[in-house]
Design a protein around this nucleic acid. Structure first.
Lengths: 247, 247
DNA sequence: TCAAAAGTGTTTCTTTTACACCCATGC
DNA sequence: GCATGGGTGTAAAAGAAACACTTTTGA
């Protein structure tokens, strides 16, 4: 492994829950390390001379090729025993990492959870020297994960769902141009409930963050739906002001 | 200082934004370190054998004497340069801390922000060996703070305000028995807006998390208001399920 | 021509807002 | 007795929910 542990903050890692949306399913990008059966969240370490947020953006870029993406810290996982099960031992055994790296990894780690919303179609999952697979998994089909990564994903989704109530999302999970049914499917997936087509349209439109194009999505088997884009200005305003304040 | 730095995770601190409510003002508990003019958030470090959450609870207990209090992690502050201005140098100068402690403090620190909601009347602010003052400050009168502590407070309040929309709060900031006007004053302070008395009552009551007692608050200059307590069961349920889901 | 998806409008119900009157207390 | 705060109810407005019909398209 090419990491020079001297340059890294010891005991601090970060894990990215990278959400995508495809075929009406919420997906998460996962990684399998060489020599380990379980899958893991893509993650990394923070350089001593680097902002923590920057390290997360760097990891996201490495893994997806994407830049300037919605990426947000959501929780610090800091239990003493969270990484005590030394999952990487089999990596040392097959010489994916060396002894000193193994020792370094063996210390107590706290990890910062980040979640990212990305356009599924733009991502080409990347493996590296220490991983032999990188792939999207549908929310319902997430395999067995190392240490507390299942918990991290659960917490990320919980945060995302909450976010949905007061922030405009969708911009990052969909392609630039999208249809209303696509946006609705995204909301339905995230909320895990069916919504009324007409009421959904009304509500979303009332936010004033969408612009409908003249263009329609052709080639579908049925009536061609309109394409929409987010109105940059109003969208950004909504990001700051929120949507449903409740009071 | 009695801390043995060998037992602590290096480069990791935590800061607690302890909110109280008194005389219709939102207050924050602050600390002044010996030899430093600026005030600071009460904070601490995490033992190598301790959960991060536990360290926060420990700090809260030390500082306020309170246990089992609403205490929640809200953000990790991880910029490289956040603590580079070495505010503690004057502490070393007057020998509040020794050289090795100063060196230890001089490294890059990331800090986890926690916020706590406490019953103002139950707190007896505690100083210790390294601080010469510990006091409540009204939100509007927060003095100059060390490093990024003003930012940390701002972020805590932002989180708290957001929380207000989907979680029952008040339980932790008020005495066990409280009046509707007191609860309303709390909401008004947190939201920084006036609310209609009658509509507020209706809305709060519709949540079903309060129980009205027969008892009234006597001794006031006017009509005696009823006392309320939170209904434990429904309150806890609301904590989990949320109040205004928005969808 | 028909099944399935997409577009649009209306009615009903619920929630929120705005607003007015009576009661209790200390001065 | 009057100023002030506290309790309660009701009518109007806004928003959410429920619901039906028409259009487009490929098979």
């Amino acid at each position: 492994m090419v990491l020079n542990t001297d340059q890294l903050i010891p005991g601090l890692s970060l894990d990215c829950v990278i959400f995508g949306f495809h075929e009406n399913q919420l997906k998460v990008l996962l990684l399998r390390m060489k020599g380990i059966e379980q899958w893991a969240l893509p993650g990394g370490f923070v350089k001593k001379t680097e902002d923590v947020d920057h390290a997360a953006a760097r990891e996201l870029k490495t893994r997806t090729g994407l830049d300037h993406i919605f990426l947000q810290q959501f929780h610090l996982f800091g239990d003493v025993r969270r990484n005590e099960d030394a999952y990487y031992r089999s990596m040392e055994a097959i010489q994916v990492i060396d002894r000193s790296m193994a020792v370094w990894l063996n210390q107590r780690f706290i990890t910062v959870g980040y979640y990212a919303l990305v356009d599924y179609s733009k991502v080409r999952p990347q493996t590296d020297e220490i991983s032999d697979a990188c792939a999207w998994f549908a929310w319902e089909e997430i395999p067995d994960l190392i240490i507390d990564h299942a918990l991290i994903i659960a917490k990320a989704l919980e945060t995302l769902r909450r976010q949905l109530n007061y922030q405009p999302i969708g911009k990052n999970l969909l392609a630039e141009k999208f249809t209303m049914p696509e946006l609705q499917a995204l909301y339905e997936t995230l909320l895990d409930q069916k919504l009324d087509r007409r009421n959904f349209q009304r509500k979303i439109r009332s936010y004033g963050i969408l612009k409908r194009l003249e263009e329609r999505r052709k080639g579908g088997a049925h009536k061609a739906p309109y394409l929409y884009v987010f109105d940059e200005q109003n969208y950004n305003k909504a990001l700051i002001d929120g949507l449903n304040t409740g009071w």
